[in-house]
Structures are given as structure tokens and as C-alpha cells.
Amino acid sequence: MSEFFQATVLLGLLTAGVRLATPFLFAGLGEMLSQRSGVLNLGVEGIMLIGAFVSFFVAFESGNLYLGLLAAILAGAFMGLLTAFVSVTMKAVQGISGIGIHILGLGLSGLFFRLTMGSISTMRGFPRLAIPILKDIPVLGRVLFNQNWMVYAALLLVPISWAVIYKTTFGLKVRSVGENPHAADSLGISVTRVRYICVVIGSIMASIAGAFLTIGQHEAAFVNNIAAGRGFIAVALVYFAKWNPLGVLAGAFLFSMIDAFQLRIQIIDIGIPYEIPVMLPYIVTIVVLALSTRGRVLGPTALTKPFVRGVHT
């Protein structure tokens, strides 16, 4: 047991936790923006899969990782437009349309993987990039500042999202569209446009989260269904976060740290069935949320409600 608390193991745990949290940060922050504007995008998982495949494929064929990332951004934007068209313009029931987008993404990524690559290939992804000076901070340096740049980008997105939502005119528009679209509309804000922008940005971030699973790994590979449910967890974490970027950070870290922890607790073999540790991140997330919620926390009032001028729901 004592060896478990060795410094290297603990450092490894924290480092792994940050790495595991990265896709949740990208996808979760994007989903939060989308939900802030009143659109539930349950298709994150499918969009992640498309981002994972497209980025890997383009990077593999071109030999340029940044080109791969760009392709993931474009693919994410396309899926975002599709999602927004279905959810905003066609006013579809958002829970269901998201499941449709998920299934479609699963299918398209698998189909094009087979048609274009046909077998599992590997390549070098983004390397670790130690940040000078910062990397020498004890513990924190090793944990936070010896990762690849996508991890830094994800972490930076937390304050950026916070600033955008709470400190910019755009953020104000987004919140008003999500809270009271009719009032926003009467003030001359285009509800449709704001929602389109938020959904597209959210989808791009989901796609980047997918790219992190392939080209964001030191050794990169794409396999079918590589997201393995992470997209749904990302959506769930937005509820955990109560639509606050700092909450997304807390939720992503909580879930991932416990995941990294359970991977290590299994190793020391404490004599319980391994399924219990595997369940741990899921159960702890529920319990923490249950314990931390007092009273009725209101999300964006108009969440999942399509906007029709003159019809109040």
C-alpha cells in the first residue's frame, strides 16, 4: 500500500488525470456554450468520432498534424451546421436529434475509415511540449506543464470561456438567448444566429476533443468507436458544472482524476472485484453532484426549447 503513495506514482496519477480530462474539457466547454444558448446537443459523441477520424486521416495522408487539426475543425463546423439546422431551424426535439447525430457520426467515421484506410495504422501525434520555467515548478510543473499543446489549449479555454460568457457582449447575448429568447428577440438580437454560432463552436470543440484522442496522443491511431462514450460523459459534465466553465473544469478533473486513481488502485490489488473501481468515476460524479446540489438550480430557461416568435412555451 505504501508504495502507492510514492511520489512518482502520485505524479503519474495527476498527469494521467489531466490528460484524461482534456477531451472532456474541449467537448464539455463547447457543449456548455451550446446549452447556454438554449440548445442541447446530445450528438457530441458522434461529432467526436468524426473529428477523431478526419484529423487522423488527413494528418496521416498529408504528414501534417496541423492540417489534420484543421480538417477536424472544418468537419466539426459542418456537423455543427447540420446540428443547428436540425435543432434551431427545424426545431426538432433536441434529445432525439442528438442521438441521430451520434449514430450518424458513428456510422460515417466507421464507413470512411473502412473506405479510405481499411486497417489500423499508427503515426506520431503531437509530442510533449514542456513549457520552460513553468515546468520546473514542483509537482504542478510536471503535472500541468509537461503535456502536449492541446492540453494547454484545453486548460486555457476555461478562462477564455468564462470571459466570453460573462464579460463580453456576445456572452451577454448568448445568455439572454438561452434565458429569455423572446426578450432577446424584442431587443433585436437574432436568436437563430446566436444559436447557430454557439452550436457550431460547440461542435468544433467536440471535433477537436475527438482529434485529441487520435493525433493528440504521442502515438496516434484511429480505431472504430474510439470515443467509447466520452461524448456522453462530456454532456453529462455540463449538468455537473451547472453551466459554468469553472464547473466544467471541476467536473472533468473530478471524473478523470478518479478514473486515473481507479486504474492505479486496481494495480495494487486490494482484494475487491475490479468492476468496483471501474464504476467509481461514474458513481462518485453522481454522488458529488447529489451532495452539492441544494435547492433548484436553474439551467438556461430556454434549454431544449425551440424559439418561435410569438409562441411562448
Binding site: A92, G100, I101, I103, L104, L106, G107, G110, F113
Partner: peptide
């Protein structure tokens, strides 16, 4: 085999729209 999901996903997206 991924075609199952492509078709199913398309049907859901179109119907829900």
C-alpha cells in the same frame, strides 16, 4: 457494417426534423 449506423442516423435526423 458501419452503413447500418449511417442509414439509421440519417433516418432519425430527417424524421426528427
Amino acid at each position: 457494417s458501419a452503413m447500418v449506423h449511417v442509414i439509421q442516423g440519417l433516418v432519425v435526423v430527417f424524421v426528427v426534423s
